[in-house]
Amino acid sequence: MTPVVFDLDGTLIDSLGGIARAANALLAEQGLAAVPERQVAGYVGHGEHIFIDRLIADTALDAGDRAALLARFMTHYKAASRNTPLFPGVAEALARLKARGVALGLCTNKPGGPLAAVLDGLGWQSMFGAVVAGDTLARRKPDPAPLLHVFDRLGGRGVYVGDSPIDGATAQAAGVPFVLFTQGIRTVPVQDIAHDAAFDDFADLPGILDRLAG
């Protein structure tokens, strides 16, 4: 059957609140005011290095302390990741796909440390046949290399499911269909993201995948 690879943050897990708490814990340590969650959403998706650069640019954090600030943010980020909730219907959808023999993969820009905390917290150590974190390879999404690496390990190309323009661009670069989850960490209109199908309820995902497999 056609493999299915998922993004993580904003696709399977509702992680924006935890990421915002981690950022604001760092700001509080520096005696600075918190930033709103909707602002943090604009920092997410390209990995921790761009995240901290955007946070520094928007606040009074000292760019000269970047390395130390990133290390402290990662400590808070990993702690916040341990209790990240799933979006409604995710567990059931993944169970249905696995019961049908679909090979599942994970391709995320989330660093390996916080990713491990999420997978451990959810009991997902064996959920996916292949996993690539943001620091697994030398390149990250939207470069297609991480996604293609996951598909190669699953035995063939299939469908990518994500929530952001980065995910859409990654799928397009990899030459695979993209299914957009519209309730994730999305900062642009749905119509501005190239996609083959879209959904807002995970109960609809298996049927969408069947139609794409055609």
Rank of each mutant, 00 (worst) to 15 (best):
S126M: 11
F151L: 12
A68W: 11
G156P: 05
K110Q: 04
A67E: 14
G123D: 05
D152V: 05
G121I: 07
V179I: 06
D62E: 10
T59F: 07
D152F: 03
V179T: 01
P177S: 00
A174C: 06
R54A: 08
A145T: 10
L122H: 15
R157Q: 15
R139F: 03
W124F: 14
V161T: 06
F87K: 03
A103R: 14
V161F: 06
R82H: 13
A93N: 07
L106G: 05
P111K: 00
V150A: 11
L86E: 14
G168N: 12
A99T: 05
G105F: 12
V118G: 03
V90G: 06
G123R: 01
L119H: 03
D62R: 01
S81G: 03
K98I: 08
P165V: 11
R100Y: 06
A95S: 10
L122P: 09
N83E: 15
F128N: 14
R82P: 04
A60D: 15
G156M: 13
A130D: 09
A60C: 01
F73V: 00
V159I: 15
T170S: 13
A63D: 07
V102L: 12
T136A: 03
N109S: 04
T84Q: 00
V102T: 13
T75M: 04
G158L: 10
A174F: 03
D58C: 13
V176H: 09
S81Q: 00
G101Q: 08
M74Q: 13
V118S: 00
L154D: 12
C107K: 02
D167C: 11
I56E: 14
A67F: 07
C107L: 03
A133N: 08
V176I: 13
T136C: 04
C107V: 01
I166Y: 10
A60E: 14
P85Y: 08
G168P: 12
T75G: 11
G162C: 13
V118C: 02
Y77P: 01
A57V: 11
F73A: 00
L147C: 02
A171L: 13
S126N: 14
R96I: 08
P144M: 02
D58T: 08
R72V: 05
A171V: 06
A80T: 01
K98M: 08
A80Y: 03
L97F: 10
V90Y: 07
L55Q: 07
R96Q: 14
Q125H: 12
D120A: 15
G129R: 07
A130Q: 05
A60Q: 08
R140F: 11
F178S: 01
E92V: 07
A60Y: 02
D135M: 02
V132M: 09
V131T: 15
T59V: 05
L137D: 04
M74Y: 02
F151N: 01
K98C: 08
D167T: 09
A169L: 13
V159W: 13
A71F: 03
D120H: 13
A174S: 04
K110E: 04
A57I: 14
R100G: 12
